[in-house]
Design a binder for these strands. Structure first.
Lengths: 145, 145
DNA sequence: TTTATGTAGTCAGTATTGCTGACATATATT
DNA sequence: AATATATGTCAGCAATACTGACTACATAAA
């Protein structure tokens, strides 16, 4: 067992539960906006990820969301039909379909974001700049396993 | 628009996407262990939350997981039948059912945790004690909206 | 050029997770 | 005794995700 308090099992365990809770809270905020557009959690995950990674290819989206292409396809086709997301053929590799938010997609994404932002801003205003930067740094390290 | 860099829209937006990604990554790690026990995401959320809040009542679990009692009930009854979670009548308020992990439940919880821990520990070892404490602090502030 | 591989799309069927509404039971409160 | 609260249950439905099999097309390798 480590001598460093912050590496102790109980601390790690607590943080894992806090991450679940923070995710559940943050992603429940936009519920009404999503519902208004007949979208659900799956659409939300897709919009959020494409927004953060414009021009990403389908395979990368599948990898990030950890779902099968069949599961992705249903939701993606709905968003394409609703003109929230657009696809373009890859210029270097013509097999790829690159994903972008449309203007309409950007608008919905902003609407969703503005609700989530409230919670995050409220939290961050009680923190100093360094704490927020560290938070981001740690998040990134968790992702890059 | 704020003068504080860390409160700028792009930073907040990036952090929201990182939280989604960190959650997706962290909660995909225990997949094999859950599958082995014929459990899914719903069971996982339940086990994790009861583990972190032993003796919590059903209503609190519903509130935390943001699902209906009917949705909870199906999964909870499965876990009770499999002797992963136990219920006890509240001593102060006899209507309440207080939830605990059984010995078997603790064991599975540990098994799940040990996989998730790897990722978190790896990340935390690249950070100093203060950064990890800040991370936890910010997470908590996000939750307490 | 032919063949193999990689990217994406599609069809069919199934399991899991979540919802609503209605109703039941036990306990607590007034 | 009447009402409110906490939990459980039944039935039906919708959304999300899975597997397997197959197609179409583009690129890479032989």
């Amino acid at each position: 067992m480590s001598d460093f308090l912050y590496l102790r099992e109980n601390n790690i365990k607590e943080i894992i539960e806090l991450m679940l809770e923070a995710y559940t809270e943050s992603y429940s905020d936009p519920y009404e906006i999503l519902k208004k557009n007949s979208f659900g959690r799956a659409h939300h995950r897709l919009i959020c990820t494409v927004n953060a990674n414009p021009g990403m290819k389908v395979a990368d989206l599948i990898k990030k969301l950890k779902i099968t292409k069949q599961s992705l396809s249903r939701v993606l086709q709905e968003l394409i039909k609703d003109k929230i997301i657009s696809q373009s053929k890859g210029k270097i590799d013509g097999r790829q379909r690159l994903l972008h938010l449309t203007e309409k997609g950007e608008k919905i994404s902003e609407e969703i974001f503005s609700i989530q932002k409230e919670r995050i801003l409220k939290a961050f205003k009680e923190c100093d700049s360094q704490e927020v930067l560290n938070f981001k740094k740690v998040l990134k390290k968790i992702i890059n396993n």
